[in-house]
């Protein structure tokens, strides 16, 4: 299975919070900005792509145990949210790519590395 470390490299994403990315398996992705929807649909091996950067994103990441949060469109991570992510062991990555572009790249990569 692909690791988050490989996925980060393919996406050209930056690590905003987190370590040991090579220990986290990735099997899919989930793209959504509505938290209620993400809670019920995101899977533990998903990269969750979103433009939301509020503190609740970390709570939802903890609830779903997703592999990481990927902030798209160059959205920045506020310091208090970063601190919460660190505290809860949530990996947050960042990219300039849109959610659509990041999803497409992730999908192509995971198809070749099932």
């Amino acid at each position: 299975m692909a690791t988050l470390d490989q996925v980060r490299e393919v996406l050209g994403a930056q690590i905003l919070v987190g370590n040991d990315l090579d220990q986290r398996p990735v099997a899919g992705g989930y793209a959504c900005d509505m938290l209620s929807w993400v809670m019920s649909h995101a899977q533990p091996t998903d990269v969750w792509m979103t433009i939301l950067n509020s503190i609740n994103v970390i709570a939802v990441a903890v609830l779903t145990d997703c592999a990481c949060v990927l902030l798209t469109e160059g959205v920045e991570l506020p310091p208090d949210v970063a601190a919460r992510a660190q505290d809860k062991g949530v990996v947050v990555l960042g990219t300039q790519a849109s959610t659509y572009e990041a999803s497409a790249r992730l999908h192509a990569f995971l198809n070749q590395h099932p």
Binding site: L35, S36, W37, V38, S40, L52, S54, I55, N56, V57
Partner: peptide, 17 residues
């Protein structure tokens, strides 16, 4: 809404789960 809530999914989501 700005925080990703308020879409009218809360109570239905409780029922669902």
């Amino acid at each position: 809404r700005e925080m990703g809530f308020g879409a009218g999914m809360g109570l239905p989501n409780i029922k669902k789960h």
